[in-house]
Design a protein around this nucleic acid. Structure first.
Lengths: 254, 254
DNA sequence: CCTGCAAGATTTGTATTACAAAACAAGGCG
DNA sequence: CGCCTTGTTTTGTAATACAAATCTTGCAGG
């Protein structure tokens, strides 16, 4: 496992950061169950061939994300899932990598359905000129996009810009979740150019409603877009262990 | 500032943890603006009278929460607010302490209005027997409570239990935000015993709807409770710098 | 004068060592 | 049998040294 050291150097990544990434991914993968003890610091040093300093800094990062708690003589124990900071950038990425992707996407979609219509309505009420400009800029980026990757970049920007225009700072951290879902859905669907562009009028409707400060219209427009999107994902699963349906009626990401 | 060392020892808190708390609170308080540089590690050692090891581990915790980023020769720079992990336990606490509390509460209330009705509906659809038992247990705790503090403990449990029963893990981290709002609203209002108990039937309605698996009824009941709660907070503010209205028509927390 | 390269200085990153503190375990003693 | 002391293990803190990164400065050359 010494290769991690080289990998860190090659990427220009810091060693403690790489360690945190690796250990964190292991925890999310279930390699160390909640309530169980991690190997002690000396063992990690041994496993990765690094100093205790680096290991400790990595462990502090994971502790800060709520994954583990360390106490003298005991060691580092994995905390219960309920206190994990799932909405953290890194934790969300590890979660995405470790979980059934279809299940993950339908959970995010569920949250988007709660949030985005109201967020659009708030943005219609509260947006400032530069915030509106950001939304319009993202929309124009979608219009001008020539390939799917380009489209997706601006699509994400569009949704984040609306989130920022809602005037509620607590909403902003949720942007990463949506961003993650949109870009992952992108790979999930392998959609074509003509395909995605069908969603353009739906986006335009949101933009226009916000610009005209019509909260109810913005809410409706956001709902319409989400309805269109949900086809990509299919029915939400109840059970966690549902098989990964590899295909099924794909449509386009929002 | 050497007293921090003693404070940490007295509380049984770790030194690096105390440092992270203090530095984090300073950042949220605006003492170090986004984009600006923090003092370098040597200076922190000097200020607090601790070793570089402790300072570095504190800095790694703050970096893990998205507040800062460190680079050699540059130092630790405060990142833009958009990437702060505001929904993290600690960051939320610092934010609460640093911001206009009325503004904070109305922002949380806004999010509760987006989330809780749908969460109640989902809980009605997806709850498992132990999850329902947890909701009922919390409700009974509210019924049996003899003082406001006791009531509030179970009130928080009630809402968190519903959140857990919704069957969407991504919702759980938002529980802390709601918990924080509820318990802070408690102090904010200084409500009386008879006062809070008026909200009991509203809670019961949610519980019954969930138990009977009636999502629409659960959603309505949750909305009714929130409407009752919003009176405590008053009108949401548009501007960030609105004066702190010290009183105004208080009612009771949910 | 401007440009580009190179040496130096500064700050974080990593390693190593040592010791302190905490928590559990075990054994002795009342 | 139970309490207390002692010992052991693991994390917590400290101190030091050096590596790596990058900004700055100054020098050389056009």
């Amino acid at each position: 496992m010494r290769k991690l050291k080289k990998a860190a150097k090659a990427r220009g990544e810091r060693l403690h950061h790489s360690l945190a990434q690796d250990i964190g991914a292991r925890i999310l993968r279930g390699e160390y169950a909640p309530g169980s003890l991690l190997p002690n610091e000396a063992e990690w040093c041994d496993v990765y061939g690094v100093s205790r300093t680096a290991v400790r800094e990595a462990i502090k990062m994971l502790a800060a994300k709520g994954l583990i708690v360390s106490r003298p003589k005991i060691g580092s124990r994995v905390r219960p899932r309920e206190v994990w900071n799932l909405l953290d950038r890194d934790v969300l990425a590890w979660y995405w990598a470790a979980s059934d992707q279809h299940h993950f996407l339908s959970n995010v979609q569920q949250m988007r359905e709660m949030l985005e219509p109201e967020v659009a309505a708030l943005a219609a009420l509260n947006h400032t000129p530069p915030q509106l400009a950001a939304i319009e800029g993202a929309y124009n980026g979608m219009v001008d996009s020539t390939n799917v990757a380009d489209w997706n970049v601006h699509d994400v920007k569009f949704h984040l810009a609306i989130l920022g225009a809602a005037g509620n700072e607590l909403l902003v951290p949720l942007g990463f979740m949506i961003e993650s879902a949109l870009s992952n859905m992108f790979e999930f669907t392998a959609s074509h150019n003509e395909d995605v562009r069908k969603a353009l009028p739906l986006h335009e409707a949101i933009l226009v409603a916000i610009r005209r400060r019509r909260p109810a219209a913005a809410r409706r427009a956001a709902r319409a877009l989400l309805e269109d999107t949900s086809g990509v994902i299919g029915e939400p699963r109840k059970s966690r262990s549902a098989a990964k349906a590899k295909s099924g009626n794909r449509k386009r990401p929002a």
